[in-house]
């Protein structure tokens, strides 16, 4: 009887878990990454595995830093924008111009330009430590992604300003900073923020991989990726990985070759699948989270 009840409870919990799409895809992502790592641990040579581990960790660390920097930048610029809106409306136009200037630059182009600056700093020995270089890479990407947070917070503030919510607090002597920071952003918008930040996390990985791939395959002669930390993007551009990717094409016409792919072309396939699988999972997590909280 107890076993049945426990079994039913487990089944009920499992059914409930499946409906939580964001948690489901988060666990799929973690399980998938673990599976790939164990597979590589068994079948991939140690130096290549070490590079993949480094590349994956660096990519995730940079994307996580992008989240923090974008949130800080977005929040900070929103506050500046709001102060200008209330006190110096003319100066707000200047800020708006600056923001639109950033907005007008395609993210990938902006990041590439940022990498030019980063390379110069590395070449001139201004940036030497690895953590600082990682942070700079994150900062460059965040500059072109923080607008998502800025737009979101500005919309949230505008929405609440239209409601009695804002005026009712004002006339009770509650300061506007308190209303905006605590009541609107912290209390009433964390779910919106988290949803956007998950999206930014995915966006940062995509941008980082794209730019690192572009500069690593040598589209630009001005920048050298040699001193930059290894990421999934730069790993994908390596000659071994490219051969592995070509092997996938080969297996399309030679079916019996397909069996060799997860054993003999592991590096390239692992890097490519880590990128694609991570982006797919993040998309699903963001989607599920948004749906669960009816955003």
């Amino acid at each position: 009887m107890t076993a049945t009840t426990t079994g039913e409870k487990l089944r009920h919990r499992l059914n409930h878990f499946v409906t939580l799409k964001d948690w489901l895809w988060l666990s799929i992502w973690i399980s998938g990454i673990l599976f790939i790592w164990i597979w590589n641990l068994i079948f991939l040579n140690s130096p290549a595995l070490h590079q993949i581990e480094n590349g994956f960790l660096n990519t995730i660390i940079i994307a996580a830093m992008v989240i923090l920097i974008a949130a800080g930048l977005g929040w900070g610029i929103t506050l500046i924008d709001d102060i200008l809106y209330r006190r110096f409306p003319r100066m707000r136009i200047a800020l708006g111009f600056l923001i639109n200037l950033i907005r007008s630059v395609p993210q990938i182009v902006g990041t590439l330009l940022g990498y030019v600056l980063l390379t110069l700093l590395i070449q001139n020995k201004i940036l030497t430590s690895a953590p600082l270089i990682l942070f700079s890479m994150a900062l460059i990407i965040a500059v072109f992604l923080f607008l998502e947070i800025f737009d979101l917070l500005r919309e949230r503030i505008a929405h609440f300003r239209k409601l009695d919510f804002y005026d009712a607090m004002l006339v009770c002597g509650i300061s506007e900073h308190f209303i905006i920071n605590r009541e609107i952003i912290l209390r009433s918008s964390p779910m919106h923020m988290i949803n956007k930040l998950i999206g930014i996390f995915g966006g940062a990985i995509f941008l980082l991989c794209s730019v690192d791939f572009i500069i690593s395959v040598g589209l630009s002669t001005e920048i050298s990726p040699v001193d930059l930390p290894v990421t999934l993007g730069s790993l994908l551009a390596k000659i071994d990985s490219k051969q592995d990717i070509l092997a996938i094409g080969h297996s399309m016409t030679h079916w019996n070759y397909m069996i060799k792919l997860p054993f003999e072309h592991l590096q390239g396939i692992t890097v490519a699948s880590l990128i694609v699988f991570t982006l797919l999972c993040i998309y699903q997590i963001a989607n599920g989270y948004g749906r669960r909280h009816r955003l």
Partner: peptide
């Protein structure tokens, strides 16, 4: 606000 006058919405 809050000192001389306030309002209940």
């Amino acid at each position: 606000w809050a000192r001389t006058m306030s309002m209940v919405f």
